[in-house]
Amino acid sequence: MPETVLTVDELTVHNHFTDVPAVTGVSFAVGPGQVIGIVGESGSGKTITCRALLGLLPELFEITAGSIRLLGRDTALLTEKEWTALRGSSISAVFQDPASYLNPSIPVGRQLEEVLRIKTGLPRKAARARALDLLTAVHIRDAEYVYQQFPHELSGGMLQRILIAIAIAPEPAILIADEATTALDVTVQAEIIDLLADLTRRLGLALIVVSHDLAVVAQLCQRIIVLRGGTVVEQGTVEQVLFSPQHEYTRLLIDEHHRFGLDRFLTASDRAEARA
């Protein structure tokens, strides 16, 4: 039984601006190397949940009930300074639009190096060597060349890889991927999904995958949470949620794939294989 990296217990976040709860009673736990998926449409509370986990709730949002334990520590008791130390080094995140998180006028390799120097205290030369290693680890072929390129010279898929390299640089225990593949072409999306799967296996990284697309989440996760209107409508193993969904909304998400996606063309044997 692996120790738990993150335990969320009955998390409730209140929006003081609209005076309605944004998230109500969300509970889950993730251990090293485990992957949990959070699925829901816009406004379902998935991003607010992630921001609560990162200690980055927007103004007027407040955790009013429940608890978050990160590596055994209750995050409600953390000071701002402790949060800053923890964020990046213990819990990290990548989001939908990688270009907006990078400085357009600094080569991407130097931005990665900077994170390493600040978060791990490595001297310049060692940080550079480590940065090149990390670029290779996120499947960038010519790391030396990409190191000195600017964000505008790289494709969306390449930028997302750089962001993942930056996120895993301080060796966090848990990574949140919030719609990290949404803006990418399907073939590139599959590459990033494969990369994330690799990282959980190789580094024992715990992963939270957030997406509006159930199938994207299903590629990676052992467990899935379906959120709607800030509440959990369904939660269970991938098997349970995909093959015997209980809630009408989950059925809608699945039905969409069955009716319009590739699933309808896959034969019964493919399905048996997938279940096995």
Partner: peptide, 14 residues
């Protein structure tokens, strides 16, 4: 590659 990359429910992770 396009077919193999499309996320499906039935072939998840394959």
């Amino acid at each position: 590659l396009l077919v193999g990359s499309a996320p499906t429910l039935t072939r998840a992770g394959a």
